[in-house]
Simulated scan of single mutants.
Amino acid sequence: MAKLYFRYGAMNSGKSTALLQAAYNYEERGQHVLLAKPEIDTKGADRISSRLGVDRDVDFLIRPDDDVRALFAVHRRRVQDRAEDALIPESAATGARPDVACLLIDEAQFLTPAQVDDLLRIAVTDGIPVLAYGIRTDFQTRAFPGSARLLELAHTLEELKTICRCGRKALFNARLVGGRFVFDGDQVAIDELSADRVTYESMCARCYLEESAGRLR
Rank of each mutant, 00 (worst) to 15 (best):
I40S: 14
A73V: 11
D118G: 02
A18W: 01
L35K: 03
C164P: 05
A114K: 06
A83I: 03
V116P: 10
Q115G: 09
Y24E: 06
E107G: 14
D191A: 10
T112Q: 11
L104Q: 00
L34K: 05
D55E: 14
A10L: 12
G14W: 00
M1Q: 14
D99N: 12
D99Q: 08
S91I: 14
L160G: 01
L61D: 10
R206L: 11
G30A: 05
I105P: 13
G134V: 07
L193H: 06
E158C: 05
D191Y: 03
A10S: 15
A101G: 09
Y26M: 12
S16I: 03
L71S: 04
E211Y: 07
Q109M: 08
R165M: 01
R56N: 04
A108P: 06
F72C: 08
E210H: 14
L157M: 07
M11L: 13
G127Q: 05
L52E: 05
D196L: 08
M1F: 11
Q109L: 03
K43F: 11
A108D: 02
I122Y: 02
N173M: 04
G44T: 05
L157R: 08
G146M: 02
A132T: 10
D126Y: 05
L193Y: 01
M203I: 12
D65F: 11
V68P: 03
D65W: 12
P113V: 11
M203L: 15
E158R: 10
I62V: 15
T199A: 07
T141Y: 00
T162W: 00
D191M: 05
V188A: 00
A101N: 02
T199N: 02
K15T: 14
T199Y: 01
R47V: 12
L151D: 09
F139S: 12
L120N: 01
A2I: 15
V198M: 02
I190R: 00
K161N: 03
D46P: 08
K169N: 01
D138Q: 11
A36P: 09
Q109A: 11
D46W: 12
A10Y: 07
P113G: 13
L151Y: 04
C207L: 04
R82M: 15
K169I: 05
Q140M: 14
H75Y: 15
V182F: 02
G9L: 02
Y8R: 14
F60K: 07
G95H: 09
L119D: 01
V182Y: 03
A132G: 10
R121G: 02
A86H: 15
E158I: 04
E210F: 10
I128L: 08
F60A: 11
M11E: 09
A101C: 03
A22C: 13
R82P: 13
K37D: 14
A205T: 13
D85E: 13
A70D: 08
D106S: 09
Y208F: 14
R175Y: 04
F110R: 06
A132L: 05
E39A: 15
